[in-house]
Design a protein around this nucleic acid. Structure first.
Lengths: 187, 187
DNA sequence: GAACAAGCGGAACCATGTTCCGCTAGAAAC
DNA sequence: GTTTCTAGCGGAACATGGTTCCGCTTGTTC
C-alpha cells in the first residue's frame, strides 16, 4: 500500500480502488432502498464482493455510513456561512440552516436513529458543530435568541426530532423542529 | 387455565403466578442496572427461569417492558387532569406535565430509543395521548398556544428529545424540551 | 515470469430475539 | 394417597445481524 523505496508509490492496488468505489455505490443504493440499516451482507452482495472486503475498507459498519454521506454533510456545513451572509437576520439563517440539516436527515431512512446509537457522532457532529456555533453566536450577539444555547445540544436535539419521520403516524418532525427553533427566541 | 365446569376456576397455576411476579421483579432490576436493552436471557437467569417461560408470559420482549412500566405510565396519565386543575394556567400545566413525562423517560436507560423502534407505542401513546390532548385543548382554548398542535406529535417529539440523555456529552434533554414547549406559545 | 504481499472471499464466531418440543409437576377427581 | 391430565417449564435450536480470521488469489514490481 505504501511503497516508499524506489519511486514513492502511494497508490492502492487497482482492484482495491475499484472495490471501494463499488462498495460506496452499493451502500448508497442499499441505503436508499432499505435505509441505513441495510445488512452488511446485502451491501457486499450488491457490490459483488465478500463481507471481508467491506471490513478491510471500512473497519466498522458506521464508517461506511459516514463515507456515503460525507459529501452531503460537507454541503450542509458549507451552507452555514452562506446563509449567515445572505439571510435577513441571524435567527432566520439559523432556522433555514436547521431546516437544511433536518431535510438531509429526514430523507435518510434510519440515519437519525443510527446517529444516536453508533459513534457516527464523531464525524457528523465534529463537522457541523462549529458551523452551528457560528450561527448561534451571531444570533445571540444580535440579541435574537436566549444566551447559552449549546450547539451540540441543539444539533442532537434536532437530530433526535428527525427520528421516525416518514412513518405515517401523526408525527411531523419539521413542525416540532420549527417549535424548537421558535422556542430559542429571546422572550 | 380456564376451568369453567364444576366450580368456575379461573386461576393460573401457582407456579405460573409466582414466575410472572419473579419475572417482573427481575426485569425491573435488570432495566435499572443495564437499561431496557437487558438481554432476555439475563432477565430469565435473574428470575431463575428459562427463556421459554418469559415468552409464555410475555409474547414479545416489548410486552415485558410495557408491563414493567405500566404503573408509572398510569401515574403520569393521572397527573394530567390534576395539574390542569391546580396550575396557574393551562400552559403552565402543559409545561409541568411534559416535565413529568420527560423525567420518567430520562431516568429509564434506553426506553426512549425503544419507544421508537418496537411497537411500545401501542400502550404508551394510547394511554397518554388523550391526557396530552386534554391539556393541549385547554391551552389552545385559553389562547396560550398556537392552534393545531398534534398531541401524538408532541409526545413523540418529547420522547425523541429524551433519547441519549444521561450520556455525558453536552446534551441536555430537559433544556431542549423546554425550548420546544416555549415554542408552542402563541406569538 | 517469478516472488511477494496487498487484498479477497466467505466460513466461522458472537450476541440477540424468538420458537419448539419433550418433560415436569400442579391440581382435580377418586 | 394415588392417579391422571395438561398447564407450564427449561433450554436447545433457529434466525438474523455485526465482526473476525485465515488460506488463497492476483496485482505489482523487478
Amino acid at each position: 500500500m505504501f511503497r516508499l523505496a524506489r519511486g514513492v508509490t502511494v497508490t492502492k492496488r487497482a482492484d482495491a480502488r475499484r472495490n471501494e468505489k463499488a462498495l460506496l455505490d452499493a451502500a448508497a443504493a442499499a441505503f436508499v432502498e432499505s435505509g441505513v440499516d441495510a445488512p452488511v451482507r446485502d451491501i457486499a452482495a450488491r457490490a459483488g464482493v465478500g463481507v471481508g472486503t467491506i471490513y478491510r475498507h471500512f473497519p466498522a459498519r458506521n464508517d461506511l455510513i459516514v463515507a456515503v454521506f460525507r459529501h452531503q454533510v460537507e454541503e450542509c456545513a458549507a451552507a452555514g456561512p452562506e446563509l449567515l451572509a445572505t439571510s435577513a437576520s441571524p435567527h432566520a439563517a439559523l432556522g433555514r440552516w436547521i431546516e437544511i440539516f433536518a431535510d438531509f436527515l429526514v430523507t435518510k431512512h434510519g440515519l437519525p436513529e443510527a446517529l444516536n446509537a453508533g459513534d457516527l457522532h464523531a464525524y457528523f457532529l465534529e463537522r457541523l458543530v462549529p458551523v452551528c456555533a457560528e450561527i448561534l453566536d451571531a444570533a445571540t450577539a444580535a440579541g435574537q435568541i436566549v444566551p447559552g444555547v449549546n450547539p451540540v445540544g441543539l444539533l442532537r436535539g434536532v437530530g433526535n426530532l428527525c427520528i421516525g419521520a416518514g412513518r405515517d403516524d401523526g408525527y411531523d418532525a419539521r413542525q416540532m423542529i420549527g417549535f424548537l427553533v421558535e422556542g430559542l427566541r429571546k422572550a
